[in-house]
Design a protein around this nucleic acid. Structure first.
Lengths: 367, 367
DNA sequence: TTGAAAGCGATACCAT
DNA sequence: ATGGTATCGCTTTCAA
């Protein structure tokens, strides 16, 4: 009511607003409250010191005008240029591993009022580059990425812009890039050793694309225990259920089929299991998979796995990134999250024996 | 080289840049290329008309300086104020339904160079409100939300800011809010009728929280076929595997246990199945679940479901939102995506009969 | 076709 | 404690 008469410029502004359904700005609030725009900024950001009286007046004005702070404009002028967003490049937001990781990052970010942008690379370095470029153009404060095989250039580009980057799930050898991975070699080796101890000698290994770091690591873990497995029992470059099914069927048709399978990945495990089940062999041929999956315990026999903890990976990645955003400036850190073997039956089947082990012995708690 | 002598202001700017590791701006590119900043803008945005010669010069300068466009500043000044981001409020980014939907939205957005912000409400209206507030503060161009029970105020707030909103999976009765849902009632009714036709009379219904619109719809579909089921066989407000397990155990302990279960949701289905399996009843008591889940076909017998297509939901939601962003201004539209019954065995078990149906008869293609 | 200048909405000095 | 004002990096008139 008693607000001073608007200046010419403001009149123009208000005309435009009416036309374009523009939003309420700090200037509008300042005018209504009869204070300077700087004071409004102080109240909104709760910085500096403002008389309680004025605080009230400003808040009142903001309320009646329906003022909404513009984080975009704010970050543009702010000294640190922070946008309060981090970007997450996953292989595929819809797969269980990725989305569990996503959730953990999201939670850690939300705790600090940080938003997360995400996208799926589908293992394409090209797509990954596009994503990182768009994210940096949107001025994300930091980047968490599950790097494709050739992510180095992309990541270095982001680093050059001064944006902290954390690589998760897969190793990247770059200074100043923190990494979070699991003990792929060790986990696979332990599972392989277990099968060896059960008498298995003809153990097939089915792995994912060799461009994927984890796939190479797991394979290395396998060969450390079974260095002399015939090449016919080794299949790599498997990236879908169907591919795994075909490969499994082929091996079962061999004159000397394997007595056990180790799978380097979820979808492969499922494909192998499907074929075993179709052939009625799920209780005679052992199967151990890397990475747990829902319902693995409901199948009969349950599927034994080397379980990773994607939520832990995500939480750790977020922790590392946030510490960088908080100013930490040390050399690259490399966290390794342990895996856990879960015995459910399929990985406890003895070689050559006709009978499955007693159910009670192999039963493990669900997930 | 021949660029005009920098003015005082520019000198200051360059000093700051050196100190703060600031990024390269259009002004820098303009200076190096010896053109006006407006020309750089035209080249970068590929708008207006610029001499091929100058285009080349500008691009050259941008390249050598490592110029990166700032989408944030761009949208601030741009007439339409578009930020090129849409926000997605899911129940939980890590659950399969949500993440499949997420992926579909993400893909549709990516096709137009639009980024997606996402968050999990965990069914909390409070959390949902926070998310929407943060998203609108970040000036998302549009909103796709799986609304919690009391989302109306939140959504209207966004609408008042002129931000298009699409509600997905659950109905919201607000003008100017497009919705995309599935035929929950019909799908459930069809599955129920099927059980009735198999002779079932004592059919238990396990549903999710009644605050969730889909839970109410599905229950309505069930009662339309079984209006007289004893209350003891009806359990609602089930929101976890554990809750479902407890409830299922309780019903099986009844003097007259149900001969069939209908589950209103994934986790419930899994809980029920686990209990049935623990009791060795999975071939004697029928089970049909709403919403498909991975490996449902690998169990034995396979779990019959009323399958939704979350990807289709997401794609349709994205389509509606993008059309609004393209200026479409008609009244609210309401898309309904059909469900599909998938017979895998568990929903084909006859009442009171001891034997399961022949495997061949009920076998259905996987997912 | 091109460039100068006026903002977009907000923050951060610098006086008061 | 408060307000005026110069930017933040960019787009968009408006003249030239």
């Amino acid at each position: 009511m008693t607000a001073s008469f608007p200046k010419g410029r403001t009149v123009t502004g208000e005309r435009r607003r009416a036309e374009a359904r523009q939003s309420v700005t700090m200037r509008d609030v300042a005018n209504l409250a009869g204070v300077g725009i700087a004071t409004v900024s102080r109240v909104v950001n709760n910085t500096g010191s403002v008389t309680p009286e004025l605080v009230e007046k400003v808040q009142e004005a903001a309320r009646t005008l329906g003022y909404r702070h513009d984080a975009t404009a704010s970050s543009l002028r702010r000294a640190d240029r922070r946008t309060g967003t981090v970007a997450l490049v996953l292989e595929d937001v819809s797969n269980p591993f990725s989305s569990a990781l996503h959730r953990a990052v999201s939670d850690a970010a939300a705790e600090r009022g940080i938003l997360v942008l995400s996208g799926s690379s589908d293992e394409s370095p090209e797509r990954e580059r596009e994503l990182v470029e768009t994210f940096t153009a949107r001025r994300a404060d930091g980047l968490i990425v599950v790097p494709t095989g050739r992510a180095d250039a992309t990541i270095e580009a982001a680093r050059r812009l001064g944006i902290p980057v954390v690589a998760v799930d897969r190793m990247v050898r770059l200074d100043s890039v923190d990494t979070v991975t699991v003990d792929n070699q060790e986990g696979t080796a332990r599972a392989a050793a277990r099968l060896r101890d059960l008498g298995h000698r003809r153990v097939a290994y089915f792995g994912d694309l060799a461009t994927i770091w984890t796939a190479r690591e797991r394979f290395t873990g396998f060969t450390s225990v079974f260095p002399d497995v015939p090449p016919a029992l080794i299949r790599r470059e498997l990236h879908s259920i169907d591919a795994a099914e075909d490969a499994a069927r082929a091996l079962l048709a061999l004159p000397e089929p394997p007595t056990a399978f180790i799978s380097g990945q979820n979808l492969i495990t499922i494909g192998i299991r499907r074929v075993l089940q179709d052939s009625g062999l799920e209780r005679r041929i052992a199967l151990t998979g890397f990475d747990d999956f829902p319902l693995a315990d409901l199948l009969s026999p349950g599927v034994s796995v080397i379980a990773q903890d994607p939520a832990a990976l995500g939480a750790e990645a977020a922790r590392l990134l946030l510490s960088r955003l908080d100013g930490h400036n040390g050399p690259a850190r490399h966290s390794v999250v342990p895996t856990r073997y879960i015995a459910r039956g399929s990985g406890e089947i003895r070689a050559a024996a006709g009978e499955a082990p007693a159910a009670a012995e192999v039963r493990a708690p669900g997930r």
